[in-house]
Design a protein around this nucleic acid. Structure first.
Lengths: 110, 110
DNA sequence: ATTTATAATCGTAATATTACGATTATAAAT
DNA sequence: ATTTATAATCGTAATATTACGATTATAAAT
């Protein structure tokens, strides 16, 4: 990837891109939907709902955790995951702001 | 990447992920912001606003075009880009629906 | 103390992404 | 007809992502 060049962009663009990247895989969207619907969920149940191996799911969970969108709590030998309220709202705000900024103008493209 | 496994997920999850992937780089967010603000823009002007080479910008434009979010119109030897109304709204809807489905519950995580 | 269940991590393979310089195709200008 | 400007494409290098089996660490159950 040559060099990442990430530092040369606006901080807010970097943040939007970072959250979007966390959403950039169907498995992660599926995981988030599960957590949104159930409000919390044991890791094992997530694994069972996805057509992926335990290790792969674990990897996706890790990425979501690193993006901040979810958090996990150890409960005995199980781990319970849920949405992280703060980051969720921040991501929502940032992404919705981008989309909302667009006003389709009367004259068509170009 | 082993096998892509994409076909085993919900179509709507695949679509959300596809749009999110298009947004998953600061350069592409910057490009979209430029187009949103100006309603249309010559390719060359976009290149000048980004800290990337012409070929790299062209590549990012191609990805946005492939995701459907933008379209380009040839105008003489220049190319004018703009937001694609339809896809923009679809992406907005899909992503906002995901975020909106979350209702922070009284009891904290897990 | 040993076994079992759970989920993270490691190692690895296949593929995708990012970035750029060089080249190419096209249209406009000379 | 030749030159110039514009933007796409090609080729390539460096790195990231996705996926999985195997292993590991931990806690609970026996």
């Amino acid at each position: 990837m040559g060099l990442s060049k990430t530092e040369e962009f606006r901080q807010s663009d970097i943040n939007v891109a970072r959250y979007a990247k966390a959403l950039a895989h169907p498995a992660r969207i599926a995981i988030l939907r599960i957590l949104v619907d159930r409000s919390s969920c044991i890791c094992g149940d997530i694994v069972e709902e996805l057509p992926l191996s335990q290790s792969t799911v674990s990897q996706h969970l890790k990425e979501l955790k690193e993006a901040g969108l979810i958090k996990g709590e150890i409960e005995g030998k199980k781990v319970c995951y849920c949405i992280d309220d703060q980051a969720w709202k921040q991501a929502q705000q940032l992404i919705e702001d981008l989309f909302a900024r667009y006003k389709p103008c009367c004259t068509s493209c170009c």
